[in-house]
Design a protein around this nucleic acid. Sequence first.
DNA 1: CAGTATCCTTGCGGATACTG
DNA 2: CAGTATCCGCAAGGATACTG
Lengths: 134, 134
Amino acid sequence: MDNDEIIRRSQAACEALSADEDGLKRQVLTHAGNRWSLGIVHLLGVNGRLRHAEIGRRMEGVTQRMLTRTLRQLERDGLVLRHDFQEVPPKVEYQLSELGKQMLVHMIPLWTWVVENADGFRRSREQFDADQAL
Amino acid sequence: MDNDEIIRRSQAACEALSADEDGLKRQVLTHAGNRWSLGIVHLLGVNGRLRHAEIGRRMEGVTQRMLTRTLRQLERDGLVLRHDFQEVPPKVEYQLSELGKQMLVHMIPLWTWVVENADGFRRSREQFDADQAL
DNA sequence: CAGTATCCTTGCGGATACTG
DNA sequence: CAGTATCCGCAAGGATACTG
Protein backbone atom coordinates (compact mmCIF):
# COMPACT_ATOMS: atom_id res chain seq x y z
CA MET A 1 0.00 0.00 0.00
CA ASP A 2 1.70 3.22 -1.14
CA ASN A 3 1.19 6.71 0.19
CA ASP A 4 -1.61 7.65 -2.20
CA GLU A 5 -3.47 4.46 -1.41
CA ILE A 6 -3.22 5.24 2.30
CA ILE A 7 -4.59 8.71 1.73
CA ARG A 8 -7.42 7.50 -0.47
CA ARG A 9 -8.59 4.91 2.03
CA SER A 10 -8.35 7.17 5.04
CA GLN A 11 -10.29 9.86 3.16
CA ALA A 12 -13.46 7.81 2.88
CA ALA A 13 -13.27 6.54 6.45
CA CYS A 14 -12.60 9.94 7.94
CA GLU A 15 -15.32 11.70 5.97
CA ALA A 16 -17.80 9.15 7.25
CA LEU A 17 -16.52 9.64 10.79
CA SER A 18 -16.76 13.43 10.47
CA ALA A 19 -20.36 13.17 9.30
CA ASP A 20 -21.16 11.28 12.50
CA GLU A 21 -23.45 13.76 14.22
CA ASP A 22 -24.21 11.86 17.39
CA GLY A 23 -20.68 10.48 17.75
CA LEU A 24 -21.75 6.85 17.57
CA LYS A 25 -18.87 5.61 15.44
CA ARG A 26 -16.35 7.53 17.49
CA GLN A 27 -17.86 6.07 20.65
CA VAL A 28 -17.34 2.60 19.27
CA LEU A 29 -13.72 3.49 18.62
CA THR A 30 -13.30 4.52 22.25
CA HIS A 31 -13.58 0.85 23.14
CA ALA A 32 -10.01 0.66 21.87
CA GLY A 33 -8.89 3.16 24.47
CA ASN A 34 -11.11 2.17 27.37
CA ARG A 35 -9.40 0.74 30.40
CA TRP A 36 -10.96 -2.75 30.31
CA SER A 37 -12.78 -3.18 26.98
CA LEU A 38 -9.64 -4.30 25.17
CA GLY A 39 -8.78 -7.00 27.67
CA ILE A 40 -12.32 -8.30 27.90
CA VAL A 41 -12.74 -8.56 24.13
CA HIS A 42 -9.44 -10.39 23.97
CA LEU A 43 -10.30 -12.69 26.88
CA LEU A 44 -13.64 -13.66 25.39
CA GLY A 45 -12.00 -14.13 22.02
CA VAL A 46 -9.57 -16.63 23.52
CA ASN A 47 -11.89 -18.43 25.92
CA GLY A 48 -15.19 -18.29 24.11
CA ARG A 49 -17.76 -18.10 26.88
CA LEU A 50 -17.07 -17.04 30.47
CA ARG A 51 -18.95 -16.25 33.66
CA HIS A 52 -18.88 -12.79 35.20
CA ALA A 53 -16.69 -13.79 38.16
CA GLU A 54 -14.32 -15.74 35.92
CA ILE A 55 -13.64 -12.63 33.83
CA GLY A 56 -13.11 -10.69 37.04
CA ARG A 57 -10.52 -13.17 38.28
CA ARG A 58 -8.58 -13.17 35.02
CA MET A 59 -8.55 -9.39 34.60
CA GLU A 60 -5.99 -8.16 37.10
CA GLY A 61 -7.25 -5.20 39.12
CA VAL A 62 -10.76 -4.72 37.75
CA THR A 63 -13.51 -3.91 40.25
CA GLN A 64 -16.99 -5.38 40.07
CA ARG A 65 -18.38 -1.99 39.22
CA MET A 66 -16.10 -1.38 36.25
CA LEU A 67 -16.45 -4.97 35.03
CA THR A 68 -20.24 -4.75 34.95
CA ARG A 69 -20.14 -1.28 33.43
CA THR A 70 -17.71 -2.26 30.68
CA LEU A 71 -19.63 -5.43 29.84
CA ARG A 72 -22.84 -3.40 29.57
CA GLN A 73 -21.21 -0.97 27.15
CA LEU A 74 -19.87 -3.78 25.01
CA GLU A 75 -23.27 -5.45 25.09
CA ARG A 76 -25.02 -2.21 24.16
CA ASP A 77 -22.81 -1.81 21.09
CA GLY A 78 -23.53 -5.39 20.09
CA LEU A 79 -19.98 -6.65 20.59
CA VAL A 80 -20.75 -9.00 23.48
CA LEU A 81 -23.66 -11.37 24.11
CA ARG A 82 -25.04 -11.83 27.62
CA HIS A 83 -26.63 -15.11 28.73
CA ASP A 84 -28.56 -14.91 31.99
CA PHE A 85 -29.40 -18.44 33.21
CA GLN A 86 -32.01 -17.05 35.61
CA GLU A 87 -30.79 -19.34 38.38
CA VAL A 88 -30.23 -18.96 42.11
CA PRO A 89 -27.45 -18.38 42.83
CA PRO A 90 -27.07 -16.19 39.73
CA LYS A 91 -25.23 -17.49 36.70
CA VAL A 92 -24.47 -15.20 33.77
CA GLU A 93 -22.14 -15.95 30.89
CA TYR A 94 -20.65 -13.62 28.29
CA GLN A 95 -19.21 -14.25 24.84
CA LEU A 96 -18.25 -12.28 21.76
CA SER A 97 -20.91 -11.70 19.14
CA GLU A 98 -20.02 -12.00 15.48
CA LEU A 99 -19.59 -8.23 15.49
CA GLY A 100 -17.25 -8.54 18.48
CA LYS A 101 -15.14 -11.17 16.76
CA GLN A 102 -14.87 -8.92 13.73
CA MET A 103 -13.79 -6.00 15.91
CA LEU A 104 -11.11 -8.21 17.46
CA VAL A 105 -9.82 -9.06 14.00
CA HIS A 106 -9.75 -5.45 12.86
CA MET A 107 -8.08 -4.15 16.00
CA ILE A 108 -5.20 -6.60 15.94
CA PRO A 109 -3.07 -4.67 13.40
CA LEU A 110 -3.36 -1.54 15.53
CA TRP A 111 -2.63 -3.32 18.81
CA THR A 112 0.34 -5.09 17.36
CA TRP A 113 1.75 -1.90 15.90
CA VAL A 114 1.34 0.00 19.18
CA VAL A 115 3.07 -2.76 21.13
CA GLU A 116 5.95 -2.93 18.65
CA ASN A 117 6.47 0.83 18.81
CA ALA A 118 6.07 1.28 22.55
CA ASP A 119 9.73 2.21 22.94
CA GLY A 120 9.34 4.93 20.33
CA PHE A 121 6.44 6.47 22.22
CA ARG A 122 8.25 6.27 25.51
CA ARG A 123 11.38 7.93 24.15
CA SER A 124 9.35 10.65 22.45
CA ARG A 125 7.53 11.41 25.68
CA GLU A 126 10.70 11.55 27.73
CA GLN A 127 12.24 13.93 25.21
CA PHE A 128 9.11 16.08 25.13
CA ASP A 129 8.83 16.25 28.91
CA ALA A 130 12.51 17.08 29.24
CA ASP A 131 12.12 19.97 26.78
CA GLN A 132 9.09 21.25 28.68
CA ALA A 133 11.02 21.23 31.93
CA LEU A 134 13.49 23.81 30.65
CA MET B 1 -7.11 -15.62 8.70
CA ASP B 2 -9.03 -18.30 10.58
CA ASN B 3 -10.25 -18.22 14.15
CA ASP B 4 -7.15 -19.80 15.67
CA GLU B 5 -4.89 -17.39 13.85
CA ILE B 6 -6.93 -14.46 15.17
CA ILE B 7 -6.62 -15.79 18.69
CA ARG B 8 -2.90 -16.40 18.42
CA ARG B 9 -2.16 -12.93 17.16
CA SER B 10 -4.37 -11.16 19.67
CA GLN B 11 -2.78 -13.19 22.44
CA ALA B 12 0.68 -11.69 22.00
CA ALA B 13 -0.61 -8.16 21.56
CA CYS B 14 -2.90 -8.28 24.55
CA GLU B 15 -0.33 -9.82 26.86
CA ALA B 16 2.02 -6.97 25.99
CA LEU B 17 -0.77 -4.46 26.61
CA SER B 18 -1.62 -6.05 29.95
CA ALA B 19 1.98 -5.84 31.05
CA ASP B 20 1.86 -2.10 30.43
CA GLU B 21 2.20 -0.80 33.98
CA ASP B 22 2.00 2.94 33.33
CA GLY B 23 -0.67 2.65 30.68
CA LEU B 24 1.48 4.16 27.92
CA LYS B 25 0.36 1.81 25.16
CA ARG B 26 -3.25 2.16 26.14
CA GLN B 27 -2.86 5.93 26.19
CA VAL B 28 -1.58 5.81 22.64
CA LEU B 29 -4.65 3.79 21.70
CA THR B 30 -6.91 6.49 23.16
CA HIS B 31 -5.90 8.67 20.23
CA ALA B 32 -8.31 6.49 18.27
CA GLY B 33 -11.19 7.54 20.50
CA ASN B 34 -10.28 11.15 21.22
CA ARG B 35 -12.55 13.82 19.82
CA TRP B 36 -10.05 15.49 17.45
CA SER B 37 -6.95 13.26 17.18
CA LEU B 38 -8.42 11.13 14.46
CA GLY B 39 -9.37 14.03 12.23
CA ILE B 40 -6.07 15.82 12.72
CA VAL B 41 -4.01 12.74 11.89
CA HIS B 42 -6.14 12.25 8.81
CA LEU B 43 -5.93 15.91 7.78
CA LEU B 44 -2.16 15.99 8.09
CA GLY B 45 -1.94 12.69 6.27
CA VAL B 46 -3.82 14.15 3.33
CA ASN B 47 -2.33 17.66 3.27
CA GLY B 48 1.19 17.04 4.45
CA ARG B 49 2.09 20.19 6.34
CA LEU B 50 -0.38 22.73 7.71
CA ARG B 51 -0.41 25.83 9.89
CA HIS B 52 -2.26 25.90 13.19
CA ALA B 53 -5.06 28.19 11.96
CA GLU B 54 -5.46 26.19 8.76
CA ILE B 55 -6.13 23.03 10.75
CA GLY B 56 -8.58 24.99 12.89
CA ARG B 57 -10.50 26.16 9.83
CA ARG B 58 -10.73 22.70 8.30
CA MET B 59 -11.79 20.92 11.50
CA GLU B 60 -15.41 21.90 11.97
CA GLY B 61 -16.19 23.00 15.51
CA VAL B 62 -12.80 22.68 17.18
CA THR B 63 -11.81 25.44 19.62
CA GLN B 64 -8.31 26.88 19.84
CA ARG B 65 -7.87 25.34 23.24
CA MET B 66 -8.71 21.78 22.15
CA LEU B 67 -6.75 22.13 18.93
CA THR B 68 -3.60 23.17 20.76
CA ARG B 69 -4.13 20.53 23.42
CA THR B 70 -4.70 17.73 20.94
CA LEU B 71 -1.69 18.74 18.84
CA ARG B 72 0.47 18.76 21.97
CA GLN B 73 -0.62 15.24 22.87
CA LEU B 74 0.08 13.97 19.39
CA GLU B 75 3.44 15.72 19.44
CA ARG B 76 4.26 14.26 22.84
CA ASP B 77 3.63 10.74 21.58
CA GLY B 78 5.82 11.40 18.56
CA LEU B 79 3.01 11.18 16.01
CA VAL B 80 3.16 14.81 14.90
CA LEU B 81 6.11 17.15 14.24
CA ARG B 82 5.89 20.82 15.18
CA HIS B 83 7.81 23.47 13.25
CA ASP B 84 7.97 26.86 14.93
CA PHE B 85 9.29 29.48 12.47
CA GLN B 86 10.04 31.89 15.32
CA GLU B 87 8.54 34.77 13.36
CA VAL B 88 6.37 37.75 14.22
CA PRO B 89 3.51 37.29 13.65
CA PRO B 90 3.79 33.65 14.76
CA LYS B 91 3.98 30.89 12.18
CA VAL B 92 3.86 27.27 13.26
CA GLU B 93 3.38 24.29 10.99
CA TYR B 94 2.48 20.70 11.81
CA GLN B 95 2.98 17.46 9.92
CA LEU B 96 2.84 13.74 10.57
CA SER B 97 6.04 12.04 11.69
CA GLU B 98 6.96 8.65 10.27
CA LEU B 99 5.39 7.16 13.39
CA GLY B 100 2.24 9.19 12.71
CA LYS B 101 2.03 7.98 9.13
CA GLN B 102 2.39 4.42 10.34
CA MET B 103 -0.41 4.93 12.85
CA LEU B 104 -2.63 6.26 10.09
CA VAL B 105 -1.95 3.12 8.07
CA HIS B 106 -2.67 0.80 10.96
CA MET B 107 -5.86 2.55 12.03
CA ILE B 108 -7.47 2.48 8.61
CA PRO B 109 -8.76 -1.14 8.84
CA LEU B 110 -10.42 -0.34 12.16
CA TRP B 111 -11.91 2.97 10.97
CA THR B 112 -13.23 1.39 7.81
CA TRP B 113 -14.78 -1.50 9.66
CA VAL B 114 -16.48 0.80 12.19
CA VAL B 115 -17.91 2.97 9.43
CA GLU B 116 -19.19 -0.04 7.51
CA ASN B 117 -20.88 -1.48 10.59
CA ALA B 118 -22.34 1.75 11.95
CA ASP B 119 -25.89 0.55 11.26
CA GLY B 120 -25.24 -2.61 13.27
CA PHE B 121 -24.12 -0.58 16.27
CA ARG B 122 -27.04 1.78 16.01
CA ARG B 123 -29.58 -1.04 15.81
CA SER B 124 -27.97 -2.85 18.71
CA ARG B 125 -28.13 0.26 20.84
CA GLU B 126 -31.74 0.98 20.02
CA GLN B 127 -32.67 -2.60 20.89
CA PHE B 128 -30.68 -2.45 24.11
CA ASP B 129 -32.14 0.87 25.19
CA ALA B 130 -35.65 -0.32 24.38
CA ASP B 131 -35.13 -3.41 26.56
CA GLN B 132 -33.83 -1.27 29.40
CA ALA B 133 -36.88 0.95 29.24
CA LEU B 134 -39.20 -1.92 30.14
C1' DC C 1 -22.79 -14.88 42.26
C1' DA C 2 -23.78 -10.93 39.95
C1' DG C 3 -24.78 -7.27 40.50
C1' DT C 4 -26.57 -1.81 42.78
C1' DA C 5 -25.78 2.39 45.46
C1' DT C 6 -22.93 5.99 47.01
C1' DC C 7 -19.07 8.94 47.05
C1' DC C 8 -14.75 10.51 45.27
C1' DT C 9 -10.93 12.09 42.09
C1' DT C 10 -9.24 12.93 37.53
C1' DG C 11 -9.27 14.26 32.93
C1' DC C 12 -11.98 15.47 28.56
C1' DG C 13 -14.16 18.84 26.08
C1' DG C 14 -15.95 23.37 25.75
C1' DA C 15 -16.86 28.71 26.46
C1' DT C 16 -14.85 32.96 27.00
C1' DA C 17 -11.39 36.31 27.53
C1' DC C 18 -6.73 37.76 27.21
C1' DT C 19 -1.46 38.15 25.25
C1' DG C 20 3.17 38.55 22.75
C1' DC D 1 -1.36 34.12 14.51
C1' DA D 2 -0.74 30.94 17.94
C1' DG D 3 -1.31 30.40 21.70
C1' DT D 4 -2.53 30.97 27.69
C1' DA D 5 -5.62 31.58 31.63
C1' DT D 6 -9.82 30.70 33.87
C1' DC D 7 -14.15 28.99 34.24
C1' DC D 8 -17.56 25.18 33.76
C1' DG D 9 -20.27 20.55 33.11
C1' DC D 10 -19.80 15.83 32.27
C1' DA D 11 -18.17 11.12 32.15
C1' DA D 12 -14.33 7.64 33.20
C1' DG D 13 -12.55 5.12 36.59
C1' DG D 14 -12.15 3.67 41.28
C1' DA D 15 -13.17 2.56 46.60
C1' DT D 16 -16.40 0.82 49.58
C1' DA D 17 -20.58 -1.03 51.20
C1' DC D 18 -24.80 -3.33 50.43
C1' DT D 19 -28.56 -6.81 48.08
C1' DG D 20 -31.56 -10.62 45.95
